[in-house]
């Protein structure tokens, strides 16, 4: 028999097995779908959050805050130092009244916090935008240190600090998510292995007959391997469908929401979708191989 005919025969027998033992097959497909859903969810979360962080990184600034009583007309040294490096794209001055107005506009619910003061409650500052690609870390740190040492400077805030921390936290969450997905995938492989083993035991009499009339191990095992593959493939497709459904449901709410924005702005890329379904199929096949590995069926 040619390989093509053999594969057709395996696929047909495996599909029949799936339908005949649909309850156990459903269990296997569900476990693998759940594990891939979780893995895929974290993958999508990571992809969206990474993109968001990249955006933030590109918009990151260094803000030089002056002491409250400082007049911007008296900060030439700071202005000059802030604008000197090659990575600096621009230096914007924010006066104390402008800072107060920004706060009121950004946080209207707590706007009263900046009202009724005799002096301006917020300091003037310089907002230094820069090209992250041109930044050399050592020189950048030295530059920040020089700015901090200026007597009129109260605080130098580098946005990169919190973006880096956020990125680290994201990697941690992604790692935990993928670990959880891997553990569940392991459980799914074991479930598929058990289901395939049960099916093999269920049809042991038939297998014995097939063996006696001259079927090779390749023909006896092939349908079971393909059955595992089908289960994994179906699990992957179900997980992908559920992820897409969730994505479509969340998307309208994503705009303007930081939390949902990290999940619902971009769906998994094609290679990631193929990877998800492929991992399911391979997991199913591994389950089948694992179940029939130790003894003759």
């Amino acid at each position: 028999m040619t390989l093509g005919k053999a594969l057709y025969y395996f696929a047909r027998e495996a599909l029949l097995n799936l339908f005949r033992s649909w309850k156990t097959s459903l269990l296997a497909v569900t476990t693998i779908a759940v594990s891939l859903f979780i893995g895929g969810f974290f993958l999508m979360l990571a992809a969206n959050a990474s993109r968001l962080i990249e955006d933030w990184k590109s918009e990151a600034m260094v803000v030089v805050y002056f002491a409250p009583t400082t007049d911007l007309n008296e900060v030439d040294a700071a202005r000059s130092l802030a604008g000197s490096p090659a990575w600096v794209e621009g230096v914007d001055e924010v006066t104390a009244p402008q800072a107060r107005e920004r706060f009121r506009a950004s946080f209207p619910s707590v706007a009263t916090l900046v009202e009724g003061w005799e002096e301006e409650p917020l300091p003037a500052s310089l907002e230094v935008s820069f090209d992250p690609l041109l930044v050399e870390d050592h020189a950048f740190e030295a530059w920040l240190g020089e700015l901090e040492e200026l007597p009129e400077v109260e605080l130098v805030d580098d946005d990169r600090d919190w973006v880096d921390q956020l990125e680290l936290a994201l990697q941690l969450v992604l790692g935990l998510g993928l670990a959880l997905g891997a553990v569940l995938l392991g459980a799914a492989i074991l479930t598929i292995a058990s289901v395939i083993r049960l099916t093999a035991i269920l049809y042991q009499d038939e297998i014995d007959v097939m063996r006696l009339v001259g079927a090779t191990e390749f023909y006896l095992r092939g349908p079971f391997y393909v059955e595992g593959l089908w289960q994994g493939l179906l699990g992957g497709l179900v997980a992908l469908g559920a992820l897409f459904g969730g994505f479509v449901a969340v998307q309208p709410m994503a705009e303007g929401s930081l939390l949902l924005g990290t999940m619902g702005t971009t769906f998994l890329a094609w290679p990631q979708q193929v990877l998800l379904v492929g991992v399911g199929a391979v997991a199913g096949l591994l389950g089948a191989i694992f179940s029939l590995r130790r003894e003759a069926i």
């Binding site: 028999m1 040619t2 005919k5 053999a6 009339v213 001259g214 090779t216 023909y219």
Partner: peptide, 8 residues
Amino acid sequence: TYLPRILG
């Protein structure tokens, strides 16, 4: 026809 089938 099981055997003819697996014989291809």
